[in-house]
Design a protein around this nucleic acid. Structure first.
Length: 214
DNA sequence: GTGTGGATTATCT
DNA sequence: GATAATCCACACC
């Protein structure tokens, strides 16, 4: 009943990033902010496979102040800042010392939409942002849920301010795999089908117009 | 509807 | 000094 009870356990996260990326689809990400729940259903994820993965920040085992959370225990957040203006949120997978993670790319907003809108706000002309624009991208969802570097390393297990809940995922036949977005520099790793979406979902991030199966 | 380029700065070489 | 796991606006079809 309590938030802490609803949160998924450490065991859930102690899996390889591909399995975890698929298992997270359909679950609900919850962010407590000023006593209010901001929540959304996870509809799009990407797996980052650690030291061998050219598209990952941990490629080659390069450990820095920025990415050190990736080496932590499963079920912790890795939040980084990029492009001079955006935050993106990952969930650390697998075992400690294995720097793999799952990037959360899109949510279907479920609770606290007005607060999300106030965080995203400022639509040109003053018009309200549509629901589908609130969390349909990795930097959009962090902005909507007020996730920044202060949550880097936060534990998603045992309650607190950030966690994932939901007893059921999405069956395999409801999941589409495509190449990851924005990693064209990663040679053969850019091609790998490591992005996972709930098939045909309207809250997916928009850009991959050419991705197969959507 | 699609395509292109600018914004803006922490982080790393 | 260059780059980036992106987003948004605007041009053009």
């Amino acid at each position: 009943m309590t938030a802490a009870t609803a949160a998924l356990s450490r065991r859930f996260y102690r899996r390889d990033p591909v399995t975890l990326a698929k298992a997270l689809l359909g679950r609900t990400l919850v962010r407590m902010l000023d006593g209010q729940r901001l929540a959304g259903r996870i509809v799009e994820t990407e797996a980052y496979l650690g030291e061998a993965d050219k598209a990952a920040h941990t490629y080659g085992g390069r450990r820095t102040a920025r990415n050190r959370s990736m080496w932590g225990e499963a079920g912790h957040a890795y939040v980084y800042f990029t492009y001079g203006m955006h935050y993106c949120m990952n969930i650390v997978a697998d075992r400690a010392e294995t720097p793999t993670a799952v990037l959360l790319r899109a949510l279907e907003p479920a609770e606290g939409l007005d607060v999300m809108r106030s965080h995203r706000g400022r639509c040109r002309g003053g018009g309200a942002l549509r629901d589908v624009d609130l969390c349909s991208g990795p930097a959009k969802l962090t902005q909507a849920l007020a996730v920044d570097r202060s949550l880097d390393g936060a534990d998603l297990v045992g309650g607190g301010v950030l966690w994932v809940e939901g007893r059921r995922g999405v069956p395999a036949q409801g999941i589409v795999a495509t190449p990851r977005i924005g990693v064209g520099y990663a040679d053969e790793w850019a091609e790998q089908p490591l992005r996972f979406c709930i098939a045909g979902h309207r809250h997916l991030s928009a850009r991959p117009a050419r991705a197969a199966g959507l």
